[in-house]
Structure formats: C-alpha cells, structure tokens
Simulated scan of single mutants.
Amino acid sequence: MVKIGVLALQGAVREHVRSVEASGAEAVVVKRKEQLDEIDGLILPGGESTTMRRLIDKYDFFDALKNFGTQGKPIFGTCAGLILLASDIVGQESAHLQLMDMKVERNAFGRQVDSFEAALEVKGIAEDFEAVFIRAPYVVEVGEDVEVLAVVNNNIVAAKQGQYLCSAFHPELTDDHRMTAYFVEMVEAAKKELAS
C-alpha cells in the first residue's frame, strides 16, 4: 500500500485524508519536512496560497518540497496547491515551487460568494465529475509538456505534467473519489518505477 502525505500547514487536510483512505492508500498528515522521506506521494491542499507559502518558508519546507518533486515522486495540488506548483502567476513577480510549466490566475473565478459547482469531463478520469470551485484559480496557459485534463468556460481547471497533477477545484469535498484514486494510481506507478 502506498503512503500519500497531505501537507498539513493549512487547508482541507481532513477531507483529503478521507479521500486518500477511500481510494485504498495510507494517508499521512505531514507537519514536518522529515516526514516527506516516509511517503510516496504528496497532496498540496486548498487554502490560501500566500499564507501557505509563508508557512512553507516558516517551517523550512520549501527546498524539501522541491526536492520531493524533482526526485520523481508525484505531487497533486488542489486549488491553492495548484498555484504553489505553477511556474508563473499572473501579476506576481515570482512564483512558488515552479514545478509545473503553467501560468495561473489567482481567484480567477471571483470571491468566495462566486463559488460554484460544475459537472466536468476530466480526461481519462471521469465524464461527469462534480467539481466544487471555491475562490478558485485557473490555468491561463501551459507549456508543451502539460496535458490539459479539464476545462470550464474555456479556462483550464485540471492538468498533468509527468508526476504532477493539479486541479483548480476541490475533489476532496465530495464523495466522488475518482480524482484522488487517479492520483493514487500515479503514485503506485511512480513507486514501481523508482524502485526498479
């Protein structure tokens, strides 16, 4: 059984843990960077990206997270987690982890009151995924190695690049665990590959 960590600095940690367990993997609540050595994959949950970055710096997670990704271990960023993965953020001089070749717009769909749900086709995962958007970002443009998985009103809301997966919505807030299960499969495949 693979171990999937949920970065527990801020955001919907408990819901992600539930979704990981429902998808047949072991969930680990990650509060110290040393724990990254014990897990096979990592979820960067939703929350507030600027606050999360401050906490990542405060608890000395930045280099450890970057190393985790560059050594081939999968990372799934949801909402604020998507922003943390991006190489470029509209209106910001510098991005955060810069692991995915994409440009994102923060709070692209508006404020909290503009939160909404949409039935999405997520390529290779679901034809009717009920996606919950809360102060969500979206991806403005992607590099050639990035595969677009889902779109809302011509805006990219889910994508994959190598071992990185991201969604602008919150897959952990419903009982549909197909997106998390897809990530679990990515982690299982990566673990086999890294072991060989």
Rank of each mutant, 00 (worst) to 15 (best):
D176I: 03
A131T: 06
A158K: 14
L82G: 08
G162A: 11
V152M: 15
R18F: 07
L82Q: 11
P74F: 00
N155E: 14
V148P: 11
M100L: 09
I43E: 10
K103Y: 08
K31I: 10
Q10R: 04
R111M: 03
D60V: 05
T180R: 11
V104L: 03
P45I: 05
E34T: 07
A131K: 04
D101C: 09
I134P: 02
V157W: 05
G81R: 13
Q71Y: 02
R106N: 03
Y59P: 03
R32I: 12
Y164P: 05
V157P: 01
V146P: 15
F133H: 02
V17P: 01
A12S: 11
A86W: 02
L99H: 04
M1Y: 09
F68P: 00
Q163W: 09
K73R: 06
S94G: 10
Q35R: 06
E121Q: 14
I134D: 06
A119L: 15
N155I: 08
G81W: 09
I156E: 09
D37Y: 11
D175I: 07
V122E: 02
V20R: 14
Y59L: 04
I83R: 01
R106K: 04
K66V: 00
V157L: 07
M102N: 10
E34K: 00
A159G: 06
L149G: 04
A126P: 08
L9C: 08
I43A: 12
Q112L: 09
Y59D: 02
L84V: 10
A168I: 04
K160P: 09
V90H: 01
A8P: 00
